[in-house]
Nucleic acid binder design. Structure first.
Length: 926
RNA sequence: GGGCCCAUAGCUCAGUGGCAGAGCGCCGCCUUUGCAAGGCGGAGGCCCUGGGUUCAAAUCCCAGUGGGUCCA
């Protein structure tokens, strides 16, 4: 088993007088020019040495530092690359947010499948790390939003020649360290003070040697040499306990924290004051934070010290605060009161920057995906503002950051923030009403609000426990928030997931591995429907056969476009194709007959179906483009499905779509159709495509491979594998059928194209005509008439009610056929009345009004009874009904003064009523 | 993608299988008045939709629709 020590013996260290030492405090190995050095230099082994004593020659702003870095590497033959969106799910589907510059090149570039956009390259990549959210503001150095400056080089071993998308070695470890050392020197750092700590890196199935660059106590950069992959047979055992072996590709992955370099150059007490000083000033002013000189000195020292501590979670922060207070000789509560508002303000500034990145990159708040993360941050920020007494509107604060970061869609950003803040306000309002009720209830019982309720309030209604505490206090109810509150919430979510049946799929893969990729004729000519091919393999299925051909015109299901149908004809069999799937490049035709392996077949695609699907596919691109024009640049596809009769497109949008907007989208879409612009396909290098059109081409998902297929529809460009008509005019017409919000932040547009559009229109027209016929009016008058009819219908319902009551009153006052019997001095009326329950009830009520016991039976729909007893009589109506209902094979019950029941045996009804007087007498005596 | 919660009068919500309710708002009358208000009466309900269980469903079960919320 080798270890990585050898990997760190770099020429650069040897040639420049470096020594390999061991930290006397933590034992880590590190390289330094200063032979007398005792520690590695990183807290807690050492303290910050740059607060009030900047480590570089000149102060840099964030922008200046970024430029200094990028141009440094540009001068050294690196190409400067524009940053990628913060929403990493635009180009990869395994993560939501960009958390490091290397994310931009995973997984396709790092694995060698796709070439990098440049090699070597340099970039300053905005990143968001949500896991740090609770530390922001408290430690002085944590930020959720940051820029990772980096230079990357992608290397492949010489001996593997053209297997990967890049070849040979650009540069490796020694050069990487040299760059870092020179950059530090250029900025005026003291070379003797820099240490390079050996700290192997492991992550996501890869690993490699890595070096932490420490200067004046601050970790300024990490130089990662990604060169190992997880391998049970591997020679290298890493700190995660797994073994790794060398890869054919090896990648220089560096990370230079822009904020930290800026901070180093300024030596402010916290990083926040270095990065966005204007915003901190604004917020302080807005929240009315003012300190006396003495207080200011305490705050300054406390900030310096908390930055100095090795704190990794919030509990530590609270503990550390005590130590700091001791050292400064102030009371811990006093200290907290001084610094907490300031900490909130630091966090607000940072969070607003994260929000600016998110909304600037057109993430739409929602309850899923990146949208949820955005919502989460926004709500947290709003709470911080309220807490710190910042009364500036949140959209203004986010806009300050968006402005600084140079976003151009600032109006939309503010719109989104305003809408979202309003939603939050509504949630809180709803929530507090709920809490008030609970608080009142438990305060009345003098019990604390139970934890279960707290968890439910949070999980189902979005109300933070501290908010519950606040409200409950007003009602005098106690709240005990358990330490493991969050764990209990998580507990509610740990239900086992569905197990998917992947066995068959695995089996297929093995069997298909030997077959060549099916040649896709449908890309060569999207209008051809006939072809000839050879049957390479037939796999028998439970229902039918999967036929593999050498080439096919059949489009397999994909990109929301359903599979083609049609036939495969051999000499003496014709098989119907009802489904087509593509697995690992091999197209499987699901057929009802076996055409025979080795046979030549003539394929015929169902043209009507295909043409309808093609129209709907092209229409989908058109509608998406039109929606973007009407609703805004942030409109992105969240999903799409094409059918023969209609299609739907789900787009991300932060509010529901109005009738006017629908009509406008429809109008623009049809203008595009009428323009009859060409729809063209193009196979193009993916970097080129991304460079020219951006990541928005990946509306329908992210294809693999070096070459991708673009569909140009008028001005719209998308990466798409579907089949399309050749001119927009071929779509015929587009009719929007409806919109609905399928979840928060996602709106579904349903539409039909071509003959399906005509059919859809005819369908709705027919429905309207039929309705008009029924009402016997002209179609235009249907709404008015329907309204009138509905009103009249309601009116009549009420009249019937009234009449029933009147009728009942008349019956009760002697007009009815009821048999009056005397039950020990009380008058009872036993009556059969074959009517519905309402009428029975009304009659019984009317009799009770006259101080009579009512026993009413009905045989209208099974046997039914209603028994009502005046207050003055001590007979339990429920018991009477129970007894009566028993005789008709059913049951019944109710309160003592009014009960109802029944049973299925209508024939026994008369006998039961006959017995009623006896039953009454019996029960009265009971 | 998954979990949980909710849907009843114009609004906010009660209603644990047995007659559809409260507060606010609305209308009318009365009292009082500088204003705020107070008293009495009234109108206003496809209890989200569709199935099921039951003698009986706003209520229980299933499915759907709509909204909310938490998590990945």
């Amino acid at each position: 088993m080798s270890d990585l020590e050898e990997e760190y013996r770099l020429d650069y260290f040897a040639e420049n007088g470096f020594h390999r030492l061991e930290c006397q405090s933590c034992g880590a190995a590190f390289w330094t020019r200063d032979e007398s050095r005792e520690t590695c230099g990183e807290p807690p082994c050492a303290e910050y040495g740059f607060i009030d004593d900047p480590g570089f020659e000149e102060e840099h702003t964030l922008e200046e530092m970024r430029e200094a870095f990028l141009s440094f590497f540009e001068e050294r033959d690196h190409e400067r690359i524009d940053p990628y969106p913060i929403a990493a799910n635009r180009w990869r589907d395994d993560v939501l947010l960009t958390q490091a510059s290397i994310y931009d090149f995973q997984p396709l570039v790092t694995s060698g499948t796709t070439p990098p956009p440049a090699n070597p390259l340099t970039i300053s990549q905005p990143c968001i790390r949500m896991q740090d959210i609770d530390n922001v503001g408290k430690t002085g150095r944590h930020t959720m939003a940051f820029e990772m400056m980096a230079h990357h080089a992608f290397n492949a071993r010489e001996e593997v020649d053209d297997e990967y998308a890049y070849e040979g070695e650009v540069y490796w470890k020694s050069e990487t360290v040299q760059y870092c050392d020179e950059l530090l020197a250029e900025l005026g750092a003291d070379p003797e003070g820099v240490t390079y700590i050996e700290d192997p890196w492991v992550g996501g199935g890869n690993a490699g040697p890595a070096i932490e660059v420490i200067y004046k106590g601050l970790e300024l950069a990490t130089l990662v040499f990604m060169s190992l992959e997880q391998d049970p047979e591997g020679d290298y055992e890493m700190k995660d306990g797994n073994t790794y072996s060398k890869m054919d590709t090896y990648v220089v992955d560096t990370g230079y924290g822009l904020e930290r370099w800026t901070w180093m150059s300024q030596g402010t007490p916290t990083v926040y004051e270095a990065v966005y000083p204007e915003m901190i000033d604004f917020l302080k002013d807005n929240a009315g934070i003012e300190y006396t000189d003495e207080e200011a000195a305490i705050v300054h020292d406390a900030a310096r010290m908390s930055g100095n501590l090795d704190i990794d979670d919030v509990d530590d922060v609270e503990a550390a605060r005590g130590d700091i207070a001791d050292e400064l000789g102030v009371d811990v509560d006093e200290l907290r009161e001084l610094v907490e508002p300031l900490e909130d303000i630091y966090a607000i500034a940072d969070h607003c920057r994260a929000l600016a990145y998110m909304f600037g990159d057109e993430i739409v708040p929602s309850n899923v995906g990146t949208g949820y993360l955005a919502r989460f941050v926004l709500r947290k920020t709003k709470r911080l503002c309220d807490n710190a007494g910042v009364d500036a509107p949140l959209d203004e604060l986010v806009d300050m950051q968006a402005d600084r970061l140079g976003y151009e869609n600032r109006d939309t950003i503010r719109d989104v923030v305003r809408t979202e803040v309003e939603k939050y306000r509504e949630t809180l309002e709803r929530g507090s009403r709920r809490v008030e009720q609970l608080a009142e209830e438990y305060a009345g019982r003098d019990e604390p609000i139970p934890t279960d309720d707290l968890v439910e309030l949070y999980d189902s209604h979005g109300i933070q426990p501290d908010m519950v505490e606040e409200i409950a206090e007003d009602y005098g109810a106690a709240v005990d928030v358990p330490d493991d509150f969050h764990a209990q919430v998580v507990e509610r979510h740990t239900e086992s997931a569905d197990e998917t049946d992947e066995e068959e799929a695995d089996l297929d893969r093995e069997r298909l591995a030997d077959l060549p990729e099916t040649e896709r004729l449908y890309y060569e000519d999207q209008n051809r429907l006939e072809f000839e091919a050879m049957v390479l393999e037939v796999i028998e299925r439970e229902e039918g056969y999967d036929v593999v051909l050498d080439q096919t015109m059949f489009y397999p299901e994909g990109g929301g476009q359903p599979a083609d149908h049609g036939t495969l004809s051999a000499e003496d069999v014709t098989a119907n194709v009802t489904d087509v799937q593509r697995v690992d490049g091999v197209v499987l035709h699901r057929a009802d007959e076996d055409p025979g392996t080795g046979e030549f077949v003539r394929g015929q695609v169902d043209g009507t179906r295909r043409r309808r699907l093609m129209r709907h596919h092209t229409a989908t691109h058109i509608v998406g483009h039109a929606a973007r024009q009407v609703l805004g640049e942030h409109i992105r596809q969240a999903g799409a499905q094409k059918h023969v009769d209609s299609a739907r497109l789900d787009v991300k949008h932060y509010e529901s779509i109005t009738r006017e907007q629908v009509e406008k989208i429809e109008r623009i879409a049809n203008e595009m159709v009428m323009d009859n612009a060409p729809v063209s396909q193009e196979w193009i290098d993916r970097n080129e495509a991304e460079a020219e059109h951006g990541f928005d081409i990946y509306q329908g998902g992210i294809p693999g491979g070096e070459q991708i297929r673009l569909i140009h529809t008028d001005e719209d460009t998308q990466a798409c594998g579907g089949t399309h008509v050749s001119r927009t005019g071929d779509v015929g017409a587009i009719k929007l059928l409806g919109t609905e919000r399928i979840q928060d932040g996602v709106v579904r547009l349903t539409y039909a194209a071509g003959d399906a559009a005509i059919e859809a229109t005819q369908r709705t027209e027919r429905a309207l005509d039929e309705a008009a016929d029924v009402l016997d009016v002209a179609p235009e008058e249907v709404p008015e008439t329907a309204r009138r009819f509905f009103d009249e219908w309601k009116e009549r319902g009420k009249q019937i009610e009234d009449l029933k009551e009147e009728l009942a009153a008349v019956r009760a006052s002697g007009g009815g056929a009821g048999e009056e019997v005397d039950v020990d001095g009380t008058t009872a009326v036993v009556q059969r009345l074959d009517a519905d329950m309402d009428e029975l009830r009304a009659t019984a009520n009317a009799l009770v009004e006259e101080e009579k016991v009512a026993v009413i039976g009905s045989g209208a729909d099974g046997a039914k009874f209603v028994v009502a007893v005046p207050d003055s009589v001590s007979i339990n109506a429920g018991d009477v009904v129970g007894e009566l209902a028993g005789r008709v094979g059913g049951g019944g019950g109710g309160p003592p003064d009014f009960a109802q029941g029944g049973g299925p045996d209508t024939d026994a009804l008369a006998d039961a009523l006959e017995d009623a007087p006896d039953i009454l007498r019996q029960l009265q005596n009971a």
